[in-house]
Amino acid sequence: MVRTQHEIVSQVYQAKADPEAADGLIRQYMGFIRSEVLKSAAPTHGGPPEDELSIAMAAFYEAILGYERGRGAFLSYAARAIRNRLVDHYRRESRHSGQLSLNVPREEEGSEELLDSIPDSRDEIEARDLQEASRKEIAEFGRQLAAMGISFSDVAESCPRQSRTLAACHRVLAHARANPHLLERFVRSGRLPVSELALGSGTDRKTMERHRNYLAAILLAFTNGYEIIREHLRQMTSGEKGGRM
């Protein structure tokens, strides 16, 4: 018993550092997660609690990230995290309690759901094409990041959370775009020209170091070839220009 606890603790610590290991650990404990969902799922919810399962898995992942040895046994910690997250979810959902779900079966036709009676205004084919194109571009983007030893998880973790820091990072980006040779050098060497960027943008070196992965990703996105991502970020750059000048 003690041995397994030790094993899972070391696994958790491994998963903290390595997203792959985290995925593996989550797959390994899917049974546990499912049972926790069933324990606290609201009985009034018809159908398989897909959303709840997603939330519970995310909560399990949060538990991996948040776990420390001083917090007791991991599984009970994770169970608590899952339950808390689900309770929050149910409370948020209870706001819509007076409304009808679109997934409720229609009364006349047995198999169809209410959702199907709503006219679909989206162009399915175009949307699918766009998604496919996006997927390819993102895959390429990911490969290039991986070549620099950065994963998307790393990027998300080093993304600035304060709007002030975010603005500082965007100043760095703006400076890099104004000086294409810096971007070029970055793409070629795979390393951020930190000192030049810090000097040119007036952003603190330390701030840049802290958000290095994020800066690498966002600078990479503005090099050639990532039309879709850049299009997605159009609001950011246009807003920046409008706001600054």
Binding site: S54, I55, M57, A58, F152, S153, V155, A156, E157, C159, P160, L166, C169, H170, L173, Y214, A217, I218, H232, L233, R234, Q235, M236, G239
Partner: peptide, 10 residues
Amino acid sequence: QEGRFYKVVN
């Protein structure tokens, strides 16, 4: 769209 990356529930 503002250039932030997040981890979100999948």
